[in-house]
Every structure is written in structure tokens, then in C-alpha cells.
């Protein structure tokens, strides 16, 4: 995957307040062209709010936001044509047939076709790419959950966006559908050179799909890096278990290999049942979130939701 220097997404000091509740306190993030990044965080951490601000669907309280060089709050149709959006759940166009819908939505992007990026995506090629060729003439409402999700992605990319937002794309998918979905996202990133920002609760998914993970908690990005880098930040508290003289021991140590060597040097062969568990992303995540929420309470999800409903002019366009 090629990662260019071009900044696609630039956020500085982003704040979002619903009434007196501050959901986003000071979010700073930057995404480069071709990157696949993941926004990870507990429920109510403000992932969806952040995404909606970036998508231009919600007006922020403060801060500087640039998406493809434009403030999404004032993004016109030209900007819209370069951004793909896949929300948590779509139920629209249930009466349309799958191919018919993709062909129709393609019309909107034709005028934005350039020599580099031919728009829109041919409906049949697109159906093949997302694996819905067999469902081409089915009505949208007759699709299964996994098929519907793939259609949502197809709709999100029909205009060949330079930047694609996926909000919890695999929530509610069975393992097979989830795997197929992962393959699709990987192909998009590799073959289409699309910059992808996704949110998820699934740590394995984050680790598998993305180059970079950003953890949002307590209204701030509390960690930003590859899965390995994040693990290192908790400085390798690996777990070592062993038995000696019929007694078992557990110890968390920073350098587990060295520790084991010392253990053998001291006790030789009388050490049994040695087990070393490396820090997993899950451990890292839990410890990071615990640290950050120890300082400040996270906003409960429904409080943010309820406040958003009656906040006048809280959304854009």
C-alpha cells in the first residue's frame, strides 16, 4: 500500500457540546492519503459524533476540521462527490432492485469524472466487486443482513470516493459475512487506493484491517499508532506464569524473555509450566481506556443522543 504525504483529513482542537454535555473535548487527528485508520472507543465516546462532523452531517462547536482540503460544514456538491459514507444502518430504497439502485446513484457522479478517476463505477463491475452479482435483480428489502451491508458499501463507493467513512460496518454480521466484508475492505484499500476511516468495537477487526488505530475516550484521542506501537506504550507488561517447588507464580514484567532467562539461570530445570502471554491489543485497549476514564467520566450514549435531538441547528446542510 502506498502512503503518500498528502493529508486527507486534518482535525485540530475539535470540540462538540450538546447543551452542557461536552462529548468531544479536544480531538486532534490527521490521516494521509491511502491510509486505513480505525477509530476505536467505548460506547458513547463520541465516535459517531466525530464521524458525523467529518461527513458534514453535524456542525461542530469549535475547532478546525479539514476533509479533502475543505471544511465539511461548507462542503458543496463537488466535495460531496469525493466522499463516501456508510452509516451504521441504512434501510432506504427497499423497493428498488439492487442493480437498478446502483445504476441510478451512479448518475449523480458522472459529471465529476476525471482522467484519473473515472466516475461512476460500472454497476455490473461494482456488483462483482462486492459479491452481489447473483442478487442484481433482487429487491433491496429482500437482501440478508450481510448482503445489505455489502450493498451499503457498494452505494458508498459507487462514485469512487477518495475518502470512505465506515461506521461500525460489521456490527451484526455473522463470521462468514464478516470475513467477506474484511476482504472487500482490504481490496478497496489495495486496488482502489481509497483512504478509509472506520469505527468498530471489534479489536481483531481493527488490528486486521487498519494501519493505524486511534482510541477515542473521554472526548479525546488517547492513543494513536499501529497495534504494536500501542502495545509498546503500555511498556510490555507481559504476563509470566511458572511453577517452582510445587507452587505457581504469576508476574507481570516488561521484558518477559529476559525475565524467563533469569528464571532458568537461577533455578535451572526445577522451573515447570512456564507460560508467557504477550500483551494483546485488548489488554492495551482496556488499560488505556481505564486510565482515561479514571480521570473523567465518559458521556453516556443516550445522554448524547437525547441532547442532539433538541439542539437547534446542531447539524449541517
Amino acid at each position: 500500500m502506498t502512503t503518500h504525504e498528502r493529508v486527507v483529513l486534518d482535525v485540530e482542537g475539535l470540540r462538540m457540546r450538546y447543551g452542557t454535555t461536552e462529548v468531544l473535548k479536544d480531538v486532534n487527528l490527521r490521516v494521509h492519503h491511502g491510509e486505513v485508520v480505525c477509530l476505536l472507543g467505548p460506547n458513547g465516546a463520541g465516535k459517531t459524533t466525530t464521524l458525523e462532523i467529518l461527513e458534514g452531517f453535524r456542525m461542530r462547536s469549535a475547532g478546525r476540521v479539514e476533509v479533502l482540503g475543505t471544511d465539511p460544514a461548507h462542503g458543496g456538491d463537488d466535495w460531496r462527490a469525493r466522499v463516501g459514507v456508510v452509516l451504521q444502518s441504512w434501510r432506504d430504497h427497499g423497493r428498488w432492485r439492487v442493480r437498478e439502485l446502483l445504476a441510478h446513484l451512479g448518475i449523480y457522479y458522472a459529471e465529476y469524472s476525471t482522467a484519473q478517476i473515472r466516475r461512476p463505477w460500472d454497476p455490473d463491475e461494482l456488483l462483482a466487486a462486492v459479491g452481489l452479482t447473483a442478487q442484481a435483480d433482487k429487491k433491496v428489502r429482500m437482501l440478508s443482513g450481510g448482503q445489505r451491508r455489502r450493498l451499503d458499501v457498494a452505494v458508498g463507493i459507487v462514485g469512487r470516493p477518495e475518502l470512505l467513512f465506515l461506521d461500525e460496518p460489521t456490527a451484526g454480521l455473522d463470521p462468514v459475512a464478516r470475513r467477506e466484508f474484511h476482504d472487500l475492505v482490504e481490496r478497496l484499500a489495495d486496488e482502489q487506493d481509497t483512504t478509509i476511516v472506520l469505527t468498530t468495537h471489534d479489536l481483531h477487526e481493527a488490528q486486521k484491517l487498519t494501519n493505524r488505530i486511534m482510541i477515542l475516550s473521554g472526548g479525546r484521542i488517547i492513543a494513536d499508532g499501529t497495534a504494536e506501537e500501542l502495545a509498546e506504550r503500555i511498556v510490555g507488561e507481559d504476563e509470566v506464569r511458572w511453577s517452582h517447588d510445587g507452587q505457581s507464580y504469576v508476574r507481570s514484567v516488561p521484558e518477559s524473555t529476559k525475565f524467563a532467562f533469569e528464571l532458568f539461570r537461577k533455578h535451572g530445570e526445577s522451573i515447570t509450566d512456564l507460560e508467557i502471554r504477550k500483551t494483546t491489543l485488548e489488554d492495551t485497549y482496556l488499560s488505556l481506556v481505564r486510565q482515561s476514564t479514571g480521570e473523567q467520566e465518559t458521556v453516556p450514549e443516550d445522554a448524547a443522543g437525547a441532547a442532539s435531538a433538541d439542539s437547534e441547528g446542531g447539524t449541517v446542510r
Binding site: 432506504d92 427497499g94 452505494v155 462514485g159
Partner: peptide
């Protein structure tokens, strides 16, 4: 009905979607 099922939001996410 179209607002309820997200057809309008889809239009909003599409260039020139709402007038069309």
C-alpha cells in the same frame, strides 16, 4: 416515510441528491 427509512439522508450524502 422517506425521511424515516433514510432515503432523504442518502440523498443528502449524494452530490445534488436532495434537489434530484
Amino acid at each position: 416515510a422517506d425521511r424515516e427509512d433514510g432515503t432523504l439522508l442518502r440523498a443528502k450524502a449524494t452530490p445534488h441528491g436532495t434537489p434530484a
